[in-house]
Nucleic acid binder design. Sequence first.
DNA 1: ACCGCGATGCCCT
DNA 2: GGGCATCGCGGTA
Length: 197
Amino acid sequence: MEALPREFYLRDARKVARDLLGKLLVRRTEQGILMAAITEVEAYLGVEDPACHSYGDRRTPRTQTMYGLGGRAYIYLIYGMHHLLNAVTGEEGDPCAVLIRAGNPAGDRELLAQNRYGKPYHELSKAQLGSFCDGPGKLAKAFGLTTEQNGWDLCDSPLFIAEGEKKKIQIATGPRIGVDYAGEAAAWPLNYRLVEE
DNA sequence: ACCGCGATGCCCT
DNA sequence: GGGCATCGCGGTA
């Protein structure tokens, strides 16, 4: 399993977002490997996007990672308790990113289950099985991600994104979630999700 | 099913 | 000191 190359990320965030659907998010740990197929993402378009943390060229300690070269992981804490994972896109100095909002667990689920619910996979309820990684906070939790991994290079670290199943997919777009404060920009069709067949 | 709300800490003004 | 790229619970149907 191989990480997507740097060039994948050095493009418009909207293109990267679409192309991330169906790809495999992977984390290697000493205990094993964690995987999920990406099913929902959102593009954040940098200094001219009122919903983006870097809107208006806000260079702060938090947004520093977004200003770096595309392909790094931008992870931050929200609401005092949830971590959110983004892939930085574009060239250095162009602070855009794609938020990974949801995925389907893949491969061995044991480590994901342990991180997410503190229980072995076979003890999970039906409801728990169905809401494993269906939100950005849940996904980060299942993968054990915190600000400790902020800045990790998705092209050269144990956290990366790999090619998924090659099959035809259908993509639905919509408004971005939870950014009403951004006014009209919240309605920009920058949320992308896989349509279930 | 859907709705409302509280949790909780860090960032930025 | 205000607000946040969320989640899960407990209420009402």
